[in-house]
Amino acid sequence: MSFEPVWGPGSRAIILGSWPSPKSWEQGFYYSHPQNRFWPLLAALAGEKTPGSIPEKKALVLRHGLALWDVLEACDIEGASDASIKNPVAVDLPGLLEKVPVRAVFCNGAASHKLYGKLLEPATGIPAVKLPSTSPANASFSMERLRRIWGQALAPWLDAGNNG
């Protein structure tokens, strides 16, 4: 079973990963591999310092009108290799969207985007924006390049979170 989604009544956009890494399972929260750039990136885009604790990470997401989850509720996977995912079972994103006013979907990496398109987009009707993965395996993307691409995509949503 996947982690619980992070969301609040002010969540206007959701960021979806594919499936937690072994390090994330060990730590009990999303993007917990020390070399994953998700938290430093999101903090930089929000103009905040990188959160350390799980409550600080949740607060960062919620303060900026975002939600966070994975595409998959369950799957068979070898280590952290998205390419090895078999027997994927989607989360109940349509159920969450009945409670949360999400208007935009962002996928952290190609695997989550592909899985979202196949398993969830037909039910949600919301096309997803594919963002480059923050995983350390995506070494071809520098932090600066990630900031530029993620920043352009998330800027309107981060601003919306701050204003209301």
Rank of each mutant, 00 (worst) to 15 (best):
L45K: 06
S32T: 08
W69T: 11
W39P: 05
R148E: 15
R148D: 12
S81E: 14
R63N: 08
I14S: 02
D82Q: 09
A160N: 08
E78W: 08
S81P: 02
S32Q: 14
S84L: 09
A160L: 14
M1S: 12
P55V: 10
Y31N: 11
L97M: 10
P132G: 09
L96W: 12
F106H: 05
K130G: 02
P20M: 04
A160V: 00
G52W: 09
P40Q: 08
G125F: 06
V89D: 06
P94K: 03
V102A: 12
A155D: 14
K99L: 14
L72F: 01
A137G: 12
F141C: 08
P94G: 01
G17I: 02
P101A: 10
A43Q: 00
L93R: 11
D76E: 14
R145P: 01
L146M: 07
E4I: 05
P5G: 13
C107L: 01
F141D: 10
A123E: 14
S135L: 02
S112W: 02
W69G: 09
G28R: 12
A128L: 00
K57N: 05
L62N: 04
L115T: 10
V71D: 06
P94W: 00
A104L: 04
S142P: 00
P132E: 11
Q152R: 14
R37L: 01
R37W: 00
A153P: 05
G151S: 09
V89C: 11
P88F: 10
C75M: 04
A160C: 06
G109R: 11
Q27F: 09
S140K: 13
S84Y: 04
E73H: 14
C107Q: 07
Y31H: 14
S18A: 15
L16W: 12
S133R: 09
G125S: 08
I126W: 04
A111F: 01
L120N: 10
S2M: 13
M143W: 04
S112G: 03
P40Y: 04
A104P: 04
G164E: 13
K118A: 09
